[in-house]
Simulated scan of single mutants.
Amino acid sequence: MNVLANRQTIVVGIDGSQQALGAALWAAAVADRMHAPLLLVNATADEYYYHYGIQAAIAYPNYADELRKAGQEMLDKASAAVAEQFPSVELAAKVYNGNPDHVIVDLSGRARLTVVGAHSRQALDALLGSTTLRVANHARGPVVVWRGDPEAALPESGTVLVGVDGEEMGEQALDYGFEVASLLNARLVALHAWSDDEEQASARLSESLAGRSEKYPDVEVDEIVQDGNPGTALLQWGKDAQLIVVGSRVRNRILANLLGSTSQNLLNRATVPILICHPLHR
């Protein structure tokens, strides 16, 4: 069965790290509530062969097989952990041949949600070269960059914080935010950071929320209008959140504000998972 056929599947990148395992358990909890299939993915890039060609194939004839075997072992471990805690989730796992970020970005174009684990908080220049940031930047649909304690990976108490700017992708972030808050039985905090007129900012936020509270009557909403930089505001309010939700254009503006400064960007500094709402395309 093609679990990616109807864009209902949640895809998780697995690389053997504890953060990837935490991401898988978090995604499984969400999949359980969404009644969505879960696909765990490992990608093996035969870079040694790619760079050294026939000499590598002669010197290490079993290299590719060993990579695939190691990838399958990572998937087996993650699958066992997921199945133990979420036996009702429809679960599949597959080793793909290719560059990990290319594989995951490609799969994101057919997924309902893509989840990748963020490794230890690192310098900004190192993060920019990571698979996590490349997937976060180029995913073809919504992507969660998961960070947290792998021993307590499941969604727990805490708000769902949504960055609102009145633009199209910010509106999509609100849609995802309400859906996830409803699934997780969480309070939603809608945050709009302004730099012009507070009254107009409040009106924009109220306009953005109109209709969604009626669609999700179970979700309690707090409206926050704050003067200042949106990235700083999200980091401030995100300390008490279990998930931060932003539109991709909001994210790009935040990165533009923080890059080049002594501060690290939102993806590197936040201590909770971040959902980035890219437009859907294949």
Rank of each mutant, 00 (worst) to 15 (best):
Q55P: 06
P217F: 05
T159R: 11
A45H: 06
A81S: 13
H192R: 14
E214C: 01
I10Q: 01
R282S: 14
L75G: 05
L113T: 06
S213L: 13
A181H: 12
V225A: 12
G238W: 05
T44N: 02
S108M: 04
R204D: 10
Y50Q: 13
H138D: 12
E66M: 02
E156H: 14
G228L: 07
G53T: 13
S157Q: 14
S79I: 02
H102L: 01
V30G: 05
W237H: 15
N229L: 09
E84Y: 08
I54A: 15
A64Y: 04
A153H: 10
S213M: 14
A78D: 00
P87T: 12
A136L: 15
I276R: 04
Q55A: 15
L128T: 07
V145K: 09
N185D: 15
E179W: 08
H102S: 03
V250A: 13
A241Y: 07
E207F: 07
A28H: 05
A36R: 03
A270N: 01
N99Q: 00
I276T: 10
L280P: 01
G260P: 05
R110I: 00
A270I: 10
N265R: 04
G22A: 09
R7A: 09
P279W: 07
Q19E: 15
P273A: 07
A45G: 00
P150K: 13
D149P: 12
A270F: 03
L67Y: 00
E171R: 07
G177W: 07
N99V: 07
A23Y: 01
N137H: 11
I244S: 02
L161Q: 12
R249T: 12
R269S: 09
Q226T: 10
A57D: 15
A186S: 15
G228T: 10
D149R: 08
L124M: 03
R253M: 11
G109V: 06
A153T: 11
A118E: 05
Q242P: 06
R140G: 11
A241T: 10
N268R: 04
R7N: 07
A123L: 11
V115K: 05
Y60P: 04
G148P: 13
Y52W: 13
L255V: 09
L267E: 01
Y96Q: 06
G98T: 02
D149E: 14
I224R: 13
N99T: 03
E84Q: 15
T262L: 00
E168Q: 09
Q172W: 02
G163D: 03
V250L: 09
H35G: 14
N257Q: 09
A126T: 07
R7Y: 01
N6P: 00
E207I: 02
G166F: 00
L267R: 03
R282I: 09
S120E: 15
I224S: 11
D46M: 11
V103Y: 01
V219Q: 14
V145P: 09
Q19R: 14
E223S: 15
G231W: 11
L4R: 09
V162E: 01
S17F: 05
D32P: 07
N99G: 00
D65S: 03
G163P: 03
